[in-house]
């Protein structure tokens, strides 16, 4: 039983990790907790579902459609809701993000309906046994997709020109601009990338639990954010570690402590981390200048 909960936890953790990377990247660039990120995950799931049921696309193409759609959503949000308040105090930016999150949830409710929609069976689900470590096809797919996407992302951040620009902007936006970097483009690119990753996570969750509904992004979004904080916000490997820790502890906690309070576990972890190591596992300490 323990191994089964562990493999469930790892699959869940991969999803949190994918979502947490979006939070961490956006936070690294503009110091904003993108409250709407969890809802982009939901939008990604709905777009993938729509592509399968209405456009009759195969699952891989449908997921690409969901990613592209969510990336466009992400850019539109950054353009219309965030960029007018970039230079305003952070509280305005954050309240604007809360507004966008509420809007997206209710937008999805209006377009796709408030009820839970079932995700069609897209593949035969078999159980594999690796020396007591039981995993289903879908869990393996989730883990493989996560590894591939994170590798691609690390390549982009480390070795491409845009990635270099992203790292510059995250260190100091004003200086980056002085050095001739088009910071707006970097910001939009970051939002697009983060939203696409979030959308993939949403689509995978849709496949995993076979259910898609407008509020599905709210609690996972908070948990993914908490994962990003545990790992050290702003750090991509930190988000991976945090996501895995969150997934495993939630899965084990639900199994051995109480299943009714599985959503509460995340917040308890958050409060503990923030009280004892607010910078997270891989985070850098930031001193406040007076």
């Amino acid at each position: 039983m323990f191994m089964e909960h562990l493999s469930n936890g790892i699959a869940l953790g991969s999803i949190y990790a994918l979502t947490a990377i979006g939070y961490t990247m956006v936070y690294g660039i503009i110091r904003l907790i993108n409250f709407a990120h969890g809802d982009l995950y939901m939008v990604g799931a709905f777009l993938t579902l729509t592509a399968i049921t209405i456009l009759n696309l195969p699952i891989a193409a449908a997921m690409l459609f969901g990613m592209a759609g969510a990336a466009l959503f992400g850019i539109a949000i950054a353009k219309f809701a965030y960029s007018p308040v970039f230079k305003a105090p952070r509280i305005s930016l954050f309240l604007s993000a809360i507004g966008v999150a509420i809007f997206l949830e209710n937008f999805a409710m209006l377009v796709w309906g408030p009820e839970t929609q079932s995700f069609p069976e897209v593949m035969t689900n078999k159980i594999y046994n690796f020396a007591g470590f039981r995993m289903s096809t879908i869990q393996i797919i989730i883990i493989v997709v996560t590894i591939v996407l994170v590798s691609v992302l690390s390549y982009i951040v480390k070795y491409t020109k845009m990635g270099k620009a992203m790292r510059c902007v995250s260190q100091d936006m004003d200086t980056a601009r002085l050095m001739g970097i088009n910071t707006n483009r970097v910001v939009y690119f970051t939002f697009a990338l983060g939203s696409a990753l979030g959308a993939t996570a949403g689509a995978l969750v849709g496949m995993y639990y076979k259910a898609v509904f407008p509020m599905m992004g709210f609690v996972p979004g908070l948990k993914a954010f908490i994962s990003a904080v545990i790992g050290g916000i702003g750090s991509i490997p930190g988000a991976m570690i945090g996501g895995m820790l969150m997934g495993v502890s939630e899965s084990l906690g639900a199994a051995y402590v109480s299943s009714g309070y599985r959503d509460a576990i995340a917040f308890v972890i958050l409060i503990i981390v923030l009280l004892f190591k607010p910078t997270g596992i891989l985070g850098k300490t930031m001193k406040e200048k007076v």
Binding site: L32, I33, R90, I91, F94, V219, L222, F225, I226, V229, S258, G260, Y261, D263, A264, A266, F267, V268, L270, I271, L274, L275, P278
Partner: peptide
Amino acid sequence: IPTLRLKGDYLAIVTVGFGEILRLILIN
């Protein structure tokens, strides 16, 4: 008490968590 160590958006997330935990307790 947690607000003593937290600021702005972090605090907001903790308060969201507080609200959610309370709702879970009411349900469970």
